[in-house]
Amino acid sequence: MRIAEKEQARERARKKAESSMGSFREPMTAEELRQIAAEKFEEAAALPPGPAQQKIITAATGLRHAADVKSWLASELWPPK
């Protein structure tokens, strides 16, 4: 691949990434992530068992894990050196 083709490929990838990110938002706090996860779990509880419910539960679990990781990183609790 020539240099010009590589540059064009990078530019296309950058534009695709920017368009998928949407507008800039401040990062969510751990508490906000937990709140959204709780709402998703409630939404899933209202659905009958099936693929749609499982998809929402998976998303809610990911949000809950993200909140846990964010809390852990923000804390001053680190393993001993």
Rank of each mutant, 00 (worst) to 15 (best):
K16M: 09
S19I: 02
S75R: 10
R64A: 14
S20P: 00
K40L: 09
R14A: 12
E76D: 10
I36L: 12
L33H: 04
E31I: 12
F41I: 02
I56F: 00
W72G: 09
L63Y: 07
S20G: 02
M28W: 08
L33I: 10
G62L: 07
R25Y: 02
A38C: 00
I36D: 03
E43S: 12
A59V: 03
I57M: 13
A13I: 04
K16F: 08
W72V: 11
S23C: 04
P49V: 15
E31G: 12
R12Q: 15
R25G: 04
A60T: 06
A44F: 04
L33N: 01
T61M: 10
P49L: 14
S71M: 15
P49S: 15
E76N: 10
Q35F: 06
W72E: 13
W72T: 13
K55I: 03
G22L: 05
E11T: 11
A37H: 01
R14S: 04
A44C: 13
E76M: 05
S23R: 10
F24K: 10
L47V: 00
T61Y: 08
Q35W: 02
I57E: 14
A44L: 11
L33R: 06
F24H: 10
G50Q: 02
A74L: 10
P49N: 15
T61P: 00
L33F: 08
L73R: 13
R12A: 15
G62C: 02
D68K: 14
A67K: 03
R10T: 03
S75N: 11
P27V: 09
P51W: 03
P49C: 14
T58C: 06
E26K: 14
R34W: 01
Q35R: 14
E11K: 15
A46P: 00
D68F: 06
S19E: 14
K16H: 09
S23H: 12
K70Q: 14
E26L: 09
A17I: 02
S23N: 12
E18T: 04
S20L: 08
L73M: 10
F41N: 04
Q54D: 15
P51G: 02
A45M: 08
A59P: 00
V69Y: 12
K40W: 04
A74F: 07
A59K: 01
A52E: 11
E11V: 08
A59F: 00
E42V: 00
A66L: 09
K15H: 09
S20W: 01
A17F: 06
R64W: 07
G62H: 05
L63R: 06
P48I: 03
F41A: 01
R12L: 15
A60L: 05
G62V: 03
S75A: 10
I57C: 09
E76I: 02
I57L: 15
S20Q: 11
A60G: 12
K55Y: 03
